[in-house]
Design a protein around this nucleic acid. Structure first.
Length: 561
RNA sequence: GCUCCCAUCGUCUAGCGGUCCAGGAUGCUGCCCUCUCAAGGCAGAGACACGGGUUCGAUUCCCGUUGGGAGCGCCA
C-alpha cells in the first residue's frame, strides 16, 4: 500500500448523532480501514451550544454502530493519540489556531474588524432589500496601522481576506466546481470570544492531523472554496474532497432534528382542532403554557428532547427516527443500520449469487469495497420500510440464542420491566416471536405480534370484527365450538404446543369441521384478535390457567346478542 | 433574491453510446402454502422530467427549460 489515507469524522457536540452524520462517519471509517487511519475530532468551538454530555453521547452512538476510531477521544478502548497530533477537542487547541491567525495577519492576509453583530445585521437587511447578496469586504481606504492599534484595545473579530479571484474546488464525486470571486467575501476566522470559526478550525486541524481525505455532506460544498483559499494562504496541502449527497425526508426536504418537532407540532394542532381547548390545557400542563404557545407559533423552535418525548407519549405519537439513538431505541440492529446507511448514496455495484444487486453486506465488506468513485451525486431519501425489511431479515437469520441475547440487551436498556418475567418464559417467547419481529422492540410493542402475552388476562379487548366473524357467524357458531374446546383443553396433558394442537385437531375431526373453525375462536379468546403465532404455541406460552380464564371472559363478554 | 449541486419505477439504486420495449431491492397487488399472522414460493403493475443538439445510434455526451435540494452566520 502506497500512501496512507487519513480520514476523520468531526461532529460538533450539540446533541445526539444525527443519522446523516452516522453515514458520514461510516464512510470515513470505511475508507480508512486497511488503508490508513480514521480519527475522531470534536468540533466544540461554539461555546454556547457544545456540551460534554453531547460529546459523550456521540461517542456512544458511534461505538454502538461499530464504528471505531484509531485516534481521538478515548472511549472504552477506542481512540488515543499515537502520533501526538492531539488533543482532539478544538476547545483545547486554541493556541494552535492563534498561530495561524497571527501568521495571516502578519502577512496581511487577515485583518481585524470591529463591526458589531447588529451593525452587520443592518447591512445584510439592506442588501436583501436591494435584492443583492451581502458580501463583507474590507473598505478601500483601509488603514492597517490604525486597525492593528485598535485591535489591541478593542473587541474584534478577525477576517480572512478572500483572494480576488475565482476559486476552483476539486471534488472526487462532483468534479471541478468553480466559485466566482464576486460571491466570496472576507469571512470571520476568529470570533470575538477568541475561538476560531469552523472554517479556520477544520483547515488548521486537518492539516495538523495529516488528514488526506475529507468526506462530508454536500451541504458543505459552498464552504469549500473558503477552505481551499485558507489552505493556500497557509501553505497547507489540500485533502481530497468527497461530498456526499444529502439524506432527505420522504418529502424531499433535508432530514433534520427539527422534524421531530414538526411531527409533534402537527399532531398537537390536530388534537386541539379536534378536541378543543381541553386538549390545549393538557399539553400546556406538560410543557408549560407559555412554552407551548411559543413552540406552536414558531415553526423553527425546538422543544427539549425530554419534553418532546413526553408530549409524544401524551399524543400516542411515534416521533420520527432522526438520531442514531432513535433507531437504537426503536430496536434496529446496529449492523443493519450501517448496512442500510451504506446504500444511501453509495452502492457496491456488484451482483450476488442469484444475480441480484448485492445489497446485504457487513461492515467488513463495506470497508473492503468502499471507494469515492461509487458515491452518487443525487440526494437520497430515507426509507424506513426498507430498513425495517432488512432488519426483519437479519433478525430472522439470528439463532434463537443470539436473538435472545440481543433482545435481552435491548430490554435492559429500554424496557426493563419486561425482565420481571422468568428467563425460561422469555426464552420461549423470544423463539416464537422472532420471525414475526421487525425490530427488537416488536416483541414487547403494545401493537406488536406478541402483545397478547404481556397483557393481564382481563387486560385486552376482543376485536369486534374478529368476534363477529369467528364467534358469532357460522354453523355451528364459534362460541359453541369454543365452549367445547375449553373442555378439551382442560384435559390436555402436557399443556404444550404439540399436545394442544393434537387435541384441537381431534376435536375438529370429531365435529367434522376444519381446524380453523376451532383455532380461530380460540385465538380470538386467548389474544383478542385473529392473528398470532401457531395456536399451540400461543396457548402454551400463556399457560392452562390463563387460557381458561381468557376463554371464560370471552364467552361472558362476547356472547351472541 | 444570489451562488452551488442534483434529476432512471412511490423509495433506494444498477446502467459509465448499441447487450435496455431498462435489471435488482423495498413497498404495492394477486395466487400457492396454511388454524391465523409471519416466513417461504410464484406471478404482476410500476421509471429513463421536458426540449434541442452531437452521433449511424442516446437512459448514457453537450446546451437549455422545468422541477427539487443545499448554502448565503462572530453555527458547524
Amino acid at each position: 500500500m502506497g500512501e496512507t489515507i487519513v480520514t476523520r469524522f468531526a461532529p460538533s457536540p450539540t446533541g445526539h448523532l444525527h443519522i446523516g452524520g452516522a453515514r458520514t462517519a461510516l464512510f470515513n471509517w470505511a475508507l480508512a480501514q486497511g488503508r490508513g487511519r480514521f480519527l475522531l475530532r470534536i468540533e466544540d468551538t461554539d461555546r454556547a451550544r457544545s456540551s460534554e454530555h453531547a460529546a459523550r453521547g456521540i461517542l456512544e452512538d458511534l461505538a454502538w454502530l461499530g464504528i471505531d476510531w484509531d485516534e481521538g477521544p478515548e472511549f472504552e478502548g477506542r481512540g488515543g493519540d499515537p502520533r501526538s497530533v492531539g488533543p482532539f477537542r478544538q476547545a483545547l487547541r486554541l493556541p494552535h489556531y492563534d498561530v495561524c491567525v497571527e501568521r495571516l495577519i502578519a502577512e496581511d492576509l487577515a485583518y481585524p474588524a470591529f463591526e458589531t453583530g447588529e451593525e452587520l445585521e443592518l447591512l445584510r437587511a439592506a442588501a436583501r432589500k436591494e435584492k443583492r447578496g451581502f458580501r463583507y469586504r474590507r473598505a478601500a481606504g483601509w488603514d492597517r496601522e490604525a486597525a492593528l492599534a485598535r485591535m489591541a484595545a478593542e473587541e474584534h473579530v478577525v477576517r480572512f481576506r478572500m483572494p480576488q479571484a475565482p476559486v476552483g474546488v476539486v471534488d472526487a464525486v462532483l468534479g471541478n466546481v468553480e466559485f466566482g470571486e464576486e460571491h466570496l467575501d472576507d469571512f470571520v476566522i476568529r470570533k470575538r470570544d477568541g475561538f476560531p470559526t469552523y472554517h479556520l478550525a477544520v483547515v488548521a486541524d486537518d492539516a495538523a492531523m495529516g488528514v488526506t481525505h475529507v468526506l462530508r455532506g454536500q451541504e458543505h460544498l459552498n464552504n469549500t472554496p473558503r477552505h481551499v483559499a485558507l489552505q493556500r494562504a497557509l501553505g497547507f496541502p489540500q485533502p481530497v474532497y468527497v461530498h456526499l449527497p444529502v439524506i432527505a425526508n420522504p418529502d424531499g426536504s433535508k432530514l433534520s432534528k427539527r422534524d421531530k418537532d414538526k411531527a409533534a407540532r402537527a399532531a398537537v394542532k390536530a388534537a386541539i382542532a379536534e378536541a378543543g381547548e381541553g386538549a390545549r390545557e393538557r399539553f400546556a400542563a406538560c410543557v408549560g403554557a407559555e412554552a407551548l404557545e411559543g413552540w406552536l407559533g414558531d415553526k423553527r423552535s425546538q422543544l427539549e428532547p425530554a419534553l418532546l418525548a413526553e408530549l409524544a407519549a401524551l399524543l400516542e405519537l411515534e416521533l420520527p427516527c432522526i438520531e442514531v439513538e432513535d433507531f437504537r431505541r426503536a430496536g434496529y440492529l446496529p449492523e443493519v443500520v450501517c448496512n442500510y446507511l451504506a446504500l444511501l448514496g453509495w452502492s457496491p455495484g456488484e451482483k450476488d449469487a442469484e444475480d441480484r444487486d448485492l445489497e446485504r453486506f457487513d461492515r467488513d465488506f463495506l470497508a473492503e469495497r468502499f471507494s469515492a468513485e461509487r458515491v452518487g451525486r443525487s440526494a437520497a431519501s430515507f426509507d424506513l420500510e426498507k430498513l425495517g425489511a432488512f432488519d426483519q431479515e437479519s433478525i430472522a437469520g439470528l439463532s434463537d440464542a443470539d436473538f435472545y441475547e440481543r433482545w435481552s440487551e435491548w430490554l435492559t436498556r429500554y424496557a426493563p420491566q419486561a425482565l420481571e418475567r422468568e428467563e425460561s418464559w422469555r426464552r420461549r417467547f423470544a423463539a416464537m416471536i422472532r420471525t414475526r419481529s421487525r425490530t427488537l422492540a416488536d416483541p414487547t410493542a403494545s401493537a406488536g405480534p406478541g402483545a397478547f402475552a404481556w397483557l393481564p388476562d382481563d387486560g385486552y379487548a376482543f376485536d369486534p370484527k374478529a368476534v363477529a366473524k369467528f364467534l358469532h357467524k357460522g354453523e355451528p357458531a364459534g362460541h359453541v365450538l369454543l365452549t367445547a374446546a375449553s373442555e378439551v383443553l382442560a384435559a390436555v396433558e402436557p399443556f404444550e404446543p404439540d399436545a394442544i394442537e393434537a387435541a384441537v385437531r381431534e376435536l375438529a375431526e370429531a365435529r367434522s369441521v376444519g381446524m380453523g373453525k376451532i383455532a380461530q375462536p380460540l385465538r380470538v379468546a386467548a389474544t383478542g384478535g385473529s392473528a398470532s403465532p401457531p395456536l399451540g404455541e400461543t396457548l402454551a406460552i400463556l399457560g392452562r390457567a390463563a387460557v381458561d380464564r381468557r376463554i371464560r371472559r370471552c364467552l361472558g363478554e362476547c356472547a351472541p346478542a
